[in-house]
Write a protein that binds this DNA or RNA. Structure first.
Lengths: 225, 225
DNA sequence: CACGATCATGACGGGGCGTCACGATCGTCC
DNA sequence: GGACGATCGTGACGCCCCGTCATGATCGTG
């Protein structure tokens, strides 16, 4: 249930509609049980996004999130164990939405430069759009903590790793420390991206140019393995 | 006062010593009031370092820190307002101790490469030594949060900024986006440094080589302003 | 329609939080 | 050396957040 603010769904209406179908049990819509479950999950995630955006991660409490959903406190714990887990779920969600974009870039790329530019630009555009949904006008106090090692986040890291290996292999580039390289690429993208968001107007092209040129120019100079 | 575990200081002994001096009031040692104050501050900081190291930042509570000091709960709040403030004080302390090393490198440096190599190697050695004091054998769960914008931490950032500007100016290098460059340098140093600590044995030379070559090679390729 | 599984509910004990009135200790001045 | 005032340690207290659990409502199913 969605709590006390739950207005009664027109369930009977839906039921009468089902009468038109010979086999009601193959109705694409999942049962109400399943629907309220996903609705509650989403409500908690949305509330958490708002609360983290307004109060910051540290100041936010589980109770703040619960209050905003209108659910009972116990209900929250049917879905997530803690504030950390909700945050991880949000990070996971972001990573899950970004991964296809990254993969598209790595498949579209013809060489290392086009991959790097495509991937970094895609990331910068992604975070620029996310910012408007996340911290609308949050005071520039403390930044949100970095994403932890959730499955989807790790998958993005691995994707970068593999894409780098693939592209460099294809170009017969000399072998370098791929682990360090991937780490450096992600570090540069992450921090330049953050700085980029502080500037007005937000210029993803210029930021991507900077990051790409830095890595691209540094690559030939890296120590060989 | 240092709490109930306080063993009585040989104050009378010290006093009798003072009798040797014609003017006791110019004794270099600050008064007992001042001494216990700094002792309490230090005790809290030490306890916090241990607690953060053992439990991680998120799990640690102010009460955990208080318990380890043996002080009363109220005493803690005479020195710091919150867990966040203690953490910032620890970060500030680290930055305060690292800054002279950084400055020495920037003064010793003859060109951009020697500065970069010296600074990054100094940083890697610094964090490698700090690690042994901080998280002795902490499970690799969640890393400690990044340092916030405390005065000393900001000072280190500015120092990097200025040192970069000075060295590049001296070499008549083409003008680049110094803000992005400093951000990228710090990002690479921070993240490569972290990865470095996960490897056995910890090889600060190899890590520094990688970071230095990447930035050094990328510099000429950066977009001009 | 009736039964069983599922899940929302909110009261509850446990505990961390920050405060404050009290008293001990220290510096100072006569 | 004694007494006064400022400073600061102390720990009990009220408040709120935490996570749990017995209860009952609701849904799917036969």
């Amino acid at each position: 249930m969605t709590g006390r603010h739950d207005r009664p769904e027109p369930e009977s209406f839906s039921m009468s509609n089902i009468a038109y179908f010979p086999k009601p049990h193959i109705d694409q819509r999942p049962g109400k049980r399943e629907r309220t479950k996903t609705a509650n999950r989403q409500a908690i995630l949305d509330a958490a996004r708002e609360v983290f955006g307004e109060l910051g991660y540290d100041a936010a409490t589980v109770r703040d999130i619960i209050r905003r959903t209108g659910l009972a406190s116990g209900t929250f714990y049917n879905y997530y164990k803690s504030k950390e887990e909700v945050f991880d779920a949000l990070a996971d969600d972001g990573a899950r939405r970004f991964r296809p974009l990254l993969r598209a870039e790595s498949e579209k790329a013809t060489d290392f430069e086009s991959f790097l530019r495509g991937a970094i630009l895609a990331y910068f555009n992604f975070v620029a759009e996310e910012q408007e949904a996340w911290r609308l006008d949050r005071p520039p106090g403390e930044p949100l903590p970095h994403a932890r090692s959730t499955p989807e986040v790790v998958a993005v890291f691995d994707e970068v790793h593999e894409a780098l290996a693939r592209v460099l292999e294809r170009e017969h580039a000399p072998p370098v420390d791929l682990d360090y390289l991937a780490t450096a690429c992600i570090a540069v993208a992450r921090e330049i991206g953050e700085k980029m968001l502080e500037r007005r107007p937000v210029d993803t092209q210029a930021a991507a140019n900077f990051a790409v040129q830095l890595i691209l120019g540094g690559l030939p100079a890296l120590p060989r393995l």
